[in-house]
Design a protein around this nucleic acid. Sequence first.
DNA 1: AAGCCGGGGCC
DNA 2: GGCCCAGGCTT
Length: 359
Amino acid sequence: MDKTLLSTLRFRLAGWYRANRRALPWRRTSDPYAIWVSEVMLQQTKVETVIPYYQRFMARFPSVLDLAAADLQSVLKLWEGLGYYARARNLHRAAGQVAATHRGVLPGDHGALLNLPGIGPYIAAAVMSIAFGRPYAVVDGNVKRVLSRLFMVDAPVNRHDAYAVFERKAKTLLDPEDPGLFNQAVMELGALVCHPRQPRCVTCPVAAHCRARQAGRVEAYPRRIRKPPVPTRAAAAGVVLKDGRILIVQIPPDGLLGGLWEFPGGRVDAGESAEAACIRHIQKKTGLSVAAAERLGRIRHAYTHFKVVADLFRFEWRSGDVRLDGPVDHRWIRPDALTQYPLPKTHHKFMPLLSGLLA
DNA sequence: AAGCCGGGGCC
DNA sequence: GGCCCAGGCTT
């Protein structure tokens, strides 16, 4: 790209950003740890969703050492509802590593950051540029959308091999004078002006440089490959009652909802009743024999790769001690203690069905 | 290179 | 109901 054009683009973008940026909590600090936490929370998550989580998290864990000293369950409880719980597990583990090997100070070194769990190309570049002022270009969903329109990039943004294409573009555009501001400016432009649908080109500071706009094809970019529709699964979960207490089990740390707690249950096979499936899963996973009492209700929930229709049952314990197969821990708790544990969204949807038990 | 991993808000 | 969001990890 022509050198004069390049500096004009950088200049206009920076000017627009200074005048239009949102006053976000993580923009009032230069603490690398705070920047790091915000970037982890912002993965695949909208700014408005993150703000309250970020504020609670930073109030509770103001430094790397505070986070490293915390137990994972309290971290997951603060993360409850934010999703992608591996982010919380990795952040906690990484804090432990920073405490142990860097004396609690996040290293301003690209390679060292990439070695920490949960820090990939995006967060490494974001922390290096925003917190340390170093020239690393970020490539996120916003950047890919903005660049795909600016240069009419035909590579679909949601294909893995597209990353290298956009990274090259981002590197040539990056303003070495203030990489942190430049990176945030491109992302803010994507968030406030260069929307996925109906972009506000009229107010765009770089519309004059935009090839898609010149071609009248802004809405045709970014290009994207279609994903197949997600399947729906049937599931069942059981509230097992024994002496006024209910059983919850902890989900294994790897995989879906790892580390959270749930009522025992599982998938309903084809041709199987939800109640029979639930009894089968409880027997298999906890070793308990239960007797059916009643069906409390049904909820629906959408995950990234499937949807679930889940029936909730109430059972009375009949016999057996807990012998776990699958879950990594269990508790017999009073119903009013449920809120002390990090639970999946499905279980928050179950709560209204439990009103009789909580009384 | 592709699949897995939450939840919410928008159309 | 599909799409999108300040992605990273695993295989």
